[in-house]
Design a protein around this nucleic acid. Structure first.
Lengths: 170, 170
DNA sequence: TATTGTTATACTCTATAACTATA
DNA sequence: TATAGTTATAGAGTATAACAATA
């Protein structure tokens, strides 16, 4: 699909200040870029990249139940049910009832799931290198900043963030 | 085969490096965070944040046709048709036939669309400040790195990127 | 014949609500 | 009554394919 050489894009006065200056556009481009690349490496895992994220969370086995996991992954709890179902069918994760609250289920990785997760780490590193490759030496810096942002926005620092959002956005 | 509570947490090798170390997870969290915040500010624009991106592209009016625009926005050309339809109904953009190729249409912003776009810039800046707020002084740095990444990944540097992807990913 | 844009159809993904079992 | 998880249904969003106009 060779681009029909449409001569030179006239980016004179307006500069590229409209679209490329849009943070949402940039985030979307990079996000989709990574999803696409990761999908190619994780397509045998039910749910693709997101199924892998459930697996990753199960591997490190934090204390949370499914509801907390859904929030952490930014997906609906009903969707998470199907994801876990499929991962469980392939013996990658397991639902363990919480002794303290029999309604709650902890999602933990099976040995097979842990092995699969470990196995794909190398491929994912490779994907990351390519996705972030354009940054050269600054790739690590970008990664650090992004992680700071994500951990803050996700709820590891829930108080300040949520309050601010609800207050200011309404 | 059952390795119940007897098994150790095994956090030595994995640390808490599973989910938070996942670039895809971090990108998703930040991306959704921005979409959500931007949506609240752009909800009267057909298509929300993405409709606004079409508008932004129409404002700076590059030479490309709808197909190029769809590629730039990472959406299907059929979806773009509906988006433009809705924006055109509200007199925000206009389809202008290309004199050189009568199949092609250029999408340009109307005065009303240009005014609306200008009007929302301040609100979007505010959204960005809040989304990137956790980074403090490093917010500008992150923005710069992200833009470098996006412009590279999107096609301003299409040759190297596309070739690498097709080659290595298959 | 190939390409641009549109339209129609089908599919996937997601959200909403109702249900159970516990608390 | 409220909560955790599941299930069922409906809706939004997306892709696939067929179409008309032009090259």
């Amino acid at each position: 699909m060779a681009t029909p050489a449409a001569a030179e894009p006239a980016r004179d006065d307006a500069c590229d200040a409209a679209l490329e200056d849009d943070l949402g556009w940039a985030l979307g481009v990079v996000f989709r870029s990574h999803v696409k690349a990761a999908h190619a490496v994780l397509e045998d895992i039910p749910g693709g990249p997101r199924g892998h994220q459930v697996l990753a969370s199960a591997v490190q086995d934090l204390g949370g139940n499914q509801g907390a996991l859904a929030a952490q992954l930014g997906i609906d709890r009903t969707v998470l049910t199907y994801l876990i179902d499929d991962l469980e069918k392939m013996d990658l994760v397991e639902r363990q009832p919480d002794p303290a609250d029999r309604r709650s289920r902890r999602v933990v990785a099976t040995p097979k799931g842990r092995a699969l997760w470990t196995d794909r780490q190398a491929a994912l590193r490779h994907v990351e290198l390519r996705v972030l490759g354009a940054l050269g030496e600054d790739a690590a810096l970008f990664r650090t900043l992004l992680q700071r942002l994500a951990t803050h926005a996700n709820g590891l620092d829930p108080v300040a963030h949520t309050c601010e959002l609800v207050e200011e956005l309404q």
